[in-house]
Design a protein around this nucleic acid. Structure first.
Lengths: 163, 163
DNA sequence: TCGTGTTATATATCAAGTTATCGATATGCG
DNA sequence: CGCATATCGATAACTTGATATATAACACGA
């Protein structure tokens, strides 16, 4: 069965990148499921942003993640519900709400940085190893490699190799 | 403001590709809006699949587009509502529902192939021109180029250049 | 100081993907 | 033939992005 998106090349590059991104996120989710936290892979960038940049108001968080503000508002509400972030009004501007990692959030991020993120990074780096040349060719190679060996298996191998 | 997804590199490649794909789709939408059809850019791959492969049952359509079957069911319902596709039960298997371009759908696809798709393809090709080297670098270049000159402007230029 | 305009966030709604599940039709074996 | 199983597509519920708009707080000029 012909892969139409692939055949159409540049014309549907947006749909194609979205499709690859979704698959990567889904595969990553399977690796992250080893942590007992019931948290979606898409929430980790927000936690990582707070880890890297420290407490931030909602708007700047959105900007640093490259997504629209309502998405951040919703994610923050979810993570606050789970007790992973805290939200405090800014002292000098009552409109701003400063988001920061809670004690549990800090613990989760530290654990992830130690135990999980390196495997994921290695797995994705392995997936993209030795890629070169035109973009469309690299994307096709990624799709083919993912189909041959899913990401979570690459993560396992990386773990074994590291141990 | 630091772009966290970019800083995280391979770790958040999925989120990042999804983000780029969404931006490309949104930009493409602006080009497509010149056609009077009120149809989202994400519907065009389905129409293009029917154009390339001819009438197909729902399941094979999903497979050729690389998305899950319920997504196709919904898109087909939408496009049928708009009168762009027709759905007929298969004669030899009552479970299969064969999707095909309607007269209007055929006309829209022909028009798009003539008037719009070439500009989009050129614009995206222009966006990705001369890219080489590692994937992450190419993605960063795409993001930078998109920020500098949005896709719809590249499509205009391509049109002018072609005329 | 009061009103006007701006900014920060929240809320509502939409889009398009996902998984899980159900009902209906085929298929195939005893 | 009849029943168990498999397959196809529809539906429901959820996720995560978007845009548009409402609300609340700030800032500034008359």
């Amino acid at each position: 069965m012909e892969d139409v998106l692939r055949s159409l090349g540049f014309l549907c590059l947006g749909s194609r990148m979205k499709r690859i991104g979704e698959q990567l996120q889904a595969d990553t989710q399977r690796v992250l499921d080893r942590l007992d936290m019931r948290i979606q892979s898409s929430q980790y960038p927000l936690l990582a942003a707070l880890d890297r940049l420290g407490p931030l108001p909602v708007g700047e968080l959105a900007q640093s993640l490259g997504i629209a503000q309502p998405g951040v508002t919703r994610s923050v509400a979810l993570l606050a519900e789970l007790g992973l972030v805290e939200v405090n009004p800014s002292q000098d501007d009552q409109r701003r709400r400063i988001v920061s990692l809670s004690r549990n959030g800090r613990r989760l991020v530290d654990q992830a940085k130690r135990e999980i993120w390196p495997s994921i990074e290695n797995a994705v780096a392995d997936l993209c190893a030795d890629l070169s040349g035109p973009l469309l060719g690299q994307l096709a190679a990624i799709e083919d490699r993912l189909a041959a060996t899913p990401l979570y298996r690459r993560a396992e191998n990386a773990k074994v190799a590291a141990s």
